[in-house]
Protein backbone atom coordinates (compact mmCIF):
# COMPACT_ATOMS: atom_id res chain seq x y z
CA UNK A 1 0.00 0.00 0.00
CA UNK A 2 1.35 3.37 -0.93
CA UNK A 3 1.67 5.66 2.02
CA UNK A 4 1.32 9.35 1.54
CA UNK A 5 4.23 11.12 3.21
CA UNK A 6 4.17 14.88 3.63
CA UNK A 7 6.94 16.94 2.07
CA UNK A 8 9.53 18.24 4.54
CA UNK A 9 8.77 21.69 5.85
CA UNK A 10 11.48 24.28 5.52
CA UNK A 11 9.76 27.06 7.41
CA UNK A 12 11.07 28.27 10.74
CA UNK A 13 8.96 28.62 13.86
CA UNK A 14 9.04 31.90 15.84
CA UNK A 15 10.22 29.89 18.87
CA UNK A 16 13.30 28.64 17.03
CA UNK A 17 15.31 31.69 18.07
CA UNK A 18 15.02 30.61 21.69
CA UNK A 19 15.73 26.94 21.14
CA UNK A 20 18.89 25.02 20.49
CA UNK A 21 17.67 23.67 17.18
CA UNK A 22 20.51 21.13 16.91
CA UNK A 23 18.86 19.29 19.84
CA UNK A 24 15.29 19.48 18.50
CA UNK A 25 13.21 17.26 18.14
CA UNK A 26 13.18 16.85 21.89
CA UNK A 27 12.87 13.50 23.66
CA UNK A 28 9.50 14.20 25.31
CA UNK A 29 6.72 11.76 24.46
CA UNK A 30 3.72 12.62 22.30
CA UNK A 31 1.04 14.38 24.45
CA UNK A 32 3.58 15.36 27.12
CA UNK A 33 2.96 18.89 28.39
CA UNK A 34 6.58 19.95 28.82
CA UNK A 35 6.92 21.60 25.41
CA UNK A 36 3.91 23.74 26.29
CA UNK A 37 5.60 24.84 29.51
CA UNK A 38 8.73 25.80 27.54
CA UNK A 39 6.57 27.89 25.17
CA UNK A 40 4.86 29.58 28.13
CA UNK A 41 8.23 30.38 29.69
CA UNK A 42 9.59 31.73 26.40
CA UNK A 43 6.48 33.89 25.90
CA UNK A 44 6.85 35.30 29.41
CA UNK A 45 10.51 36.18 28.72
CA UNK A 46 9.48 37.68 25.41
CA UNK A 47 6.67 39.71 27.00
CA UNK A 48 8.93 41.15 29.70
CA UNK A 49 11.64 41.87 27.11
CA UNK A 50 14.34 40.49 29.36
CA UNK A 51 17.70 40.62 27.52
CA UNK A 52 18.75 37.02 27.01
CA UNK A 53 22.20 37.79 28.41
CA UNK A 54 20.62 38.61 31.76
CA UNK A 55 18.80 35.30 32.05
CA UNK A 56 20.04 31.91 33.21
CA UNK A 57 18.10 28.66 33.33
CA UNK A 58 19.09 25.85 35.69
CA UNK A 59 17.59 22.36 35.63
CA UNK A 60 18.07 19.19 37.56
CA UNK A 61 17.64 15.63 36.32
CA UNK A 62 14.50 14.14 34.83
CA UNK A 63 12.24 14.79 31.90
CA UNK A 64 11.85 18.43 32.94
CA UNK A 65 15.58 18.61 33.52
CA UNK A 66 16.02 18.50 29.77
CA UNK A 67 14.61 22.04 29.49
CA UNK A 68 18.01 23.60 30.24
CA UNK A 69 19.44 21.76 27.28
CA UNK A 70 16.78 22.95 24.84
CA UNK A 71 16.55 26.65 25.72
CA UNK A 72 19.12 28.84 24.03
CA UNK A 73 20.12 30.98 26.99
CA UNK A 74 22.93 30.44 29.50
CA UNK A 75 21.84 27.23 31.13
CA UNK A 76 23.14 24.44 33.31
CA UNK A 77 21.98 20.88 33.76
CA UNK A 78 22.92 20.01 37.32
CA UNK A 79 23.08 16.73 39.21
CA UNK A 80 19.91 15.27 40.65
CA UNK A 81 18.14 17.63 43.05
CA UNK A 82 20.89 20.24 43.05
CA UNK A 83 19.34 22.80 40.71
CA UNK A 84 18.45 25.21 43.53
CA UNK A 85 21.91 25.27 45.22
CA UNK A 86 23.53 25.89 41.83
CA UNK A 87 21.02 28.65 41.08
CA UNK A 88 21.60 30.17 44.54
CA UNK A 89 25.34 30.35 43.85
CA UNK A 90 24.73 31.83 40.43
CA UNK A 91 22.41 34.44 41.89
CA UNK A 92 24.79 35.40 44.73
CA UNK A 93 27.71 35.84 42.36
CA UNK A 94 25.69 38.13 40.13
CA UNK A 95 22.46 39.31 41.78
CA UNK A 96 21.47 41.23 38.64
CA UNK A 97 21.08 37.99 36.72
CA UNK A 98 17.55 36.55 36.51
CA UNK A 99 18.01 32.95 37.58
CA UNK A 100 15.23 30.53 36.78
CA UNK A 101 15.06 26.93 37.95
CA UNK A 102 12.88 24.74 35.74
CA UNK A 103 12.73 21.24 37.08
CA UNK A 104 10.41 18.43 37.99
CA UNK A 105 8.64 17.47 41.17
CA UNK A 106 10.91 14.51 41.88
CA UNK A 107 14.01 16.61 41.43
CA UNK A 108 12.93 19.71 43.37
CA UNK A 109 10.63 18.35 46.05
CA UNK A 110 12.04 14.92 46.77
CA UNK A 111 15.75 14.72 46.11
CA UNK A 112 16.27 18.46 46.33
CA UNK A 113 13.57 18.95 48.98
CA UNK A 114 16.00 20.27 51.59
CA UNK A 115 17.42 22.81 49.16
CA UNK A 116 13.90 23.91 48.24
CA UNK A 117 12.83 24.66 51.80
CA UNK A 118 16.09 26.43 52.70
CA UNK A 119 16.15 28.60 49.58
CA UNK A 120 12.54 29.55 50.42
CA UNK A 121 13.47 30.21 54.07
CA UNK A 122 16.33 32.51 53.04
CA UNK A 123 14.17 34.12 50.32
CA UNK A 124 16.87 33.82 47.70
CA UNK A 125 15.82 35.89 44.67
CA UNK A 126 15.28 33.06 42.17
CA UNK A 127 12.23 31.82 40.28
CA UNK A 128 11.32 28.15 40.53
CA UNK A 129 9.06 26.57 37.91
CA UNK A 130 8.21 23.16 39.29
CA UNK A 131 6.62 20.94 36.67
CA UNK A 132 4.56 18.37 38.54
CA UNK A 133 3.65 15.24 36.60
CA UNK A 134 2.99 13.19 39.79
CA UNK A 135 5.68 10.61 39.08
CA UNK A 136 9.37 9.95 38.38
CA UNK A 137 8.82 9.73 34.66
CA UNK A 138 12.28 9.39 33.18
CA UNK A 139 13.41 6.51 35.39
CA UNK A 140 10.35 4.34 34.87
CA UNK A 141 7.40 5.63 36.87
CA UNK A 142 8.52 5.19 40.46
CA UNK A 143 6.41 6.72 43.20
CA UNK A 144 7.26 10.37 43.85
CA UNK A 145 6.47 12.48 46.92
CA UNK A 146 3.77 14.16 44.84
CA UNK A 147 2.03 10.98 43.61
CA UNK A 148 -1.62 11.25 44.71
CA UNK A 149 -3.01 8.70 47.15
CA UNK A 150 -4.27 5.52 45.43
CA UNK A 151 -2.48 6.27 42.15
CA UNK A 152 -0.49 3.40 40.71
CA UNK A 153 3.26 3.63 40.23
CA UNK A 154 5.87 1.03 39.31
CA UNK A 155 7.07 0.87 42.92
CA UNK A 156 3.49 1.05 44.24
CA UNK A 157 1.79 -1.62 42.10
CA UNK A 158 -1.26 -1.81 44.41
CA UNK A 159 -1.68 1.96 44.61
CA UNK A 160 0.09 4.64 46.59
CA UNK A 161 -0.52 4.81 50.35
CA UNK A 162 1.98 7.60 51.17
CA UNK A 163 0.55 11.03 51.77
CA UNK A 164 1.83 13.33 49.01
CA UNK A 165 3.31 16.79 49.40
CA UNK A 166 1.15 19.80 48.73
CA UNK A 167 3.71 22.00 46.93
CA UNK A 168 2.03 25.43 47.44
CA UNK A 169 1.62 24.73 51.17
CA UNK A 170 5.23 23.54 51.44
CA UNK A 171 6.47 26.63 49.61
CA UNK A 172 4.33 29.04 51.63
CA UNK A 173 5.22 27.56 55.00
CA UNK A 174 8.92 27.60 54.11
CA UNK A 175 8.73 31.29 53.22
CA UNK A 176 8.19 31.74 49.46
CA UNK A 177 6.83 35.17 48.51
CA UNK A 178 5.01 34.15 45.33
CA UNK A 179 3.18 30.86 44.92
CA UNK A 180 0.92 29.95 42.00
CA UNK A 181 -0.34 26.73 40.48
CA UNK A 182 -1.56 26.23 36.93
CA UNK A 183 -1.80 23.32 34.56
CA UNK A 184 -0.21 22.92 31.14
CA UNK A 185 -3.63 23.66 29.66
CA UNK A 186 -3.91 27.15 31.22
CA UNK A 187 -1.16 28.48 28.94
CA UNK A 188 -2.08 32.15 29.03
CA UNK A 189 -2.55 32.30 32.79
CA UNK A 190 0.63 30.26 33.20
CA UNK A 191 2.55 32.75 31.02
CA UNK A 192 1.22 35.59 33.14
CA UNK A 193 2.14 33.78 36.36
CA UNK A 194 5.69 33.08 35.10
CA UNK A 195 6.05 36.75 34.11
CA UNK A 196 4.88 37.86 37.57
CA UNK A 197 7.20 35.38 39.25
CA UNK A 198 10.15 36.59 37.17
CA UNK A 199 9.49 40.18 38.23
CA UNK A 200 9.02 39.31 41.91
CA UNK A 201 12.03 39.94 44.13
CA UNK A 202 12.42 36.87 46.29
CA UNK A 203 11.76 33.16 46.10
CA UNK A 204 8.84 32.64 43.73
CA UNK A 205 7.33 29.26 42.93
CA UNK A 206 5.07 28.36 40.01
CA UNK A 207 3.79 24.80 40.11
CA UNK A 208 2.68 23.49 36.72
CA UNK A 209 0.56 20.35 36.59
CA UNK A 210 1.59 18.60 33.38
CA UNK A 211 0.35 15.39 31.79
CA UNK A 212 2.64 12.36 31.64
CA UNK A 213 1.23 10.06 29.02
CA UNK A 214 3.69 7.19 28.99
CA UNK A 215 4.04 6.46 32.69
CA UNK A 216 1.45 8.18 34.84
CA UNK A 217 -1.66 7.97 32.70
CA UNK A 218 -0.84 4.66 31.00
CA UNK A 219 -0.08 2.89 34.31
CA UNK A 220 -3.25 4.34 35.82
CA UNK A 221 -5.35 3.56 32.74
CA UNK A 222 -6.61 7.10 32.37
CA UNK A 223 -5.86 7.51 28.69
CA UNK A 224 -3.27 9.68 27.04
CA UNK A 225 -1.97 13.16 27.79
CA UNK A 226 -4.85 14.53 25.73
CA UNK A 227 -7.32 12.82 28.07
CA UNK A 228 -5.50 14.37 31.02
CA UNK A 229 -5.74 17.79 29.35
CA UNK A 230 -9.49 17.25 28.96
CA UNK A 231 -9.58 16.23 32.62
CA UNK A 232 -7.85 19.50 33.61
CA UNK A 233 -10.32 21.37 31.42
CA UNK A 234 -13.29 19.87 33.25
CA UNK A 235 -11.92 19.61 36.78
CA UNK A 236 -9.80 22.66 37.49
CA UNK A 237 -11.22 25.32 39.73
CA UNK A 238 -9.60 28.75 39.78
CA UNK A 239 -9.42 30.13 43.32
CA UNK A 240 -7.04 33.03 43.69
CA UNK A 241 -5.77 33.50 47.23
CA UNK A 242 -7.09 30.12 48.38
CA UNK A 243 -5.82 28.72 51.67
CA UNK A 244 -2.78 26.65 50.69
CA UNK A 245 -3.63 23.99 53.31
CA UNK A 246 -6.60 22.98 51.19
CA UNK A 247 -4.69 22.43 47.97
CA UNK A 248 -4.02 18.70 48.24
CA UNK A 249 -4.45 16.84 44.97
CA UNK A 250 -6.29 13.53 45.06
CA UNK A 251 -6.19 10.87 42.39
CA UNK A 252 -8.37 12.16 39.50
CA UNK A 253 -10.04 14.64 41.81
CA UNK A 254 -10.67 18.33 41.39
CA UNK A 255 -7.54 20.49 41.15
CA UNK A 256 -7.52 23.99 42.62
CA UNK A 257 -5.42 26.38 40.56
CA UNK A 258 -4.64 30.07 40.84
CA UNK A 259 -2.30 32.53 42.45
CA UNK A 260 -2.19 31.81 46.16
CA UNK A 261 0.58 33.89 47.70
CA UNK A 262 1.96 37.28 46.63
CA UNK A 263 3.70 39.02 49.54
CA UNK A 264 6.79 41.10 50.19
CA UNK A 265 9.74 40.10 52.34
CA UNK A 266 13.40 41.22 52.25
CA UNK A 267 15.47 38.95 50.02
CA UNK A 268 18.65 37.22 51.14
CA UNK A 269 21.00 39.88 49.75
CA UNK A 270 18.83 42.73 51.08
CA UNK A 271 18.69 41.23 54.59
CA UNK A 272 22.45 40.72 54.57
CA UNK A 273 23.14 44.28 53.44
CA UNK A 274 20.71 45.79 55.97
CA UNK A 275 22.10 43.83 58.88
CA UNK A 276 25.78 44.34 58.09
CA UNK A 277 25.21 48.06 57.49
CA UNK A 278 23.68 48.16 60.97
CA UNK A 279 26.56 46.22 62.55
CA UNK A 280 29.54 47.77 60.72
CA UNK A 281 28.14 51.18 59.86
CA UNK A 282 30.05 53.11 57.20
CA UNK A 283 32.76 50.49 57.04
CA UNK A 284 30.39 48.14 55.19
CA UNK A 285 30.07 48.39 51.46
CA UNK A 286 26.73 46.91 50.31
CA UNK A 287 27.20 43.69 48.36
CA UNK A 288 26.15 43.98 44.72
CA UNK A 289 27.77 40.87 43.33
CA UNK A 290 31.29 39.83 42.58
CA UNK A 291 30.83 39.21 38.85
CA UNK A 292 32.43 41.73 36.51
Amino acid sequence: MKREVAAPATEAHPMDELLRMDRIPHIWCPTCGLGTVVTAFASAVDKLEIPLDDLAVVSGIGCTGRVAGYIKVDSFHTTHGRAIPFATGLHLTNPKLKVVVISGDGDLISIGGNHFIHAARRNVDITVICVNNFIYAMTGGQVAPTTPLRANASTMPYGNFERPFNIPYLAESSGAVYVARWTALHVRRLTKAIAEALQKPGFSVVEVISPCSTLYSRRNRIGTGLDLMKFYHDNCEIKHGADTRELDIGFQEEITVGKFIDTERPTYVESMNTWYAEVFGDQYEPYEGSAK
Binding site: R3, E4, V5, A6, A7, P8, A9, E11, H13, I24, P25, C29, P30, T31, C32, T36, L185, G225, L226, M229, K230
Partner: peptide, 26 residues
Amino acid sequence: LVNRCKGCQFCVEYCPRDVLEMSESF
Protein backbone atom coordinates in the same frame (compact mmCIF):
# COMPACT_ATOMS: atom_id res chain seq x y z
CA LEU B 1 5.69 22.36 10.31
CA VAL B 2 4.37 18.92 9.49
CA ASN B 3 7.47 16.87 10.19
CA ARG B 4 7.90 18.15 13.73
CA CYS B 5 4.41 16.98 14.75
CA LYS B 6 3.98 14.00 17.09
CA GLY B 7 0.21 13.89 16.71
CA CYS B 8 -0.82 14.91 20.22
CA GLN B 9 -3.98 16.68 18.91
CA PHE B 10 -3.85 19.49 21.50
CA CYS B 11 -4.26 22.08 18.72
CA VAL B 12 -7.16 20.23 17.09
CA GLU B 13 -8.96 19.72 20.40
CA TYR B 14 -8.59 23.25 21.74
CA CYS B 15 -8.90 25.42 18.62
CA PRO B 16 -11.83 27.69 19.59
CA ARG B 17 -12.94 28.06 15.95
CA ASP B 18 -12.51 24.39 14.92
CA VAL B 19 -10.11 25.32 12.17
CA LEU B 20 -7.92 22.25 12.45
CA GLU B 21 -8.50 18.59 11.78
CA MET B 22 -6.21 15.55 11.86
CA SER B 23 -5.03 14.57 8.41
CA GLU B 24 -5.38 11.13 6.90
CA SER B 25 -1.75 11.01 5.79
CA PHE B 26 1.44 10.60 7.79
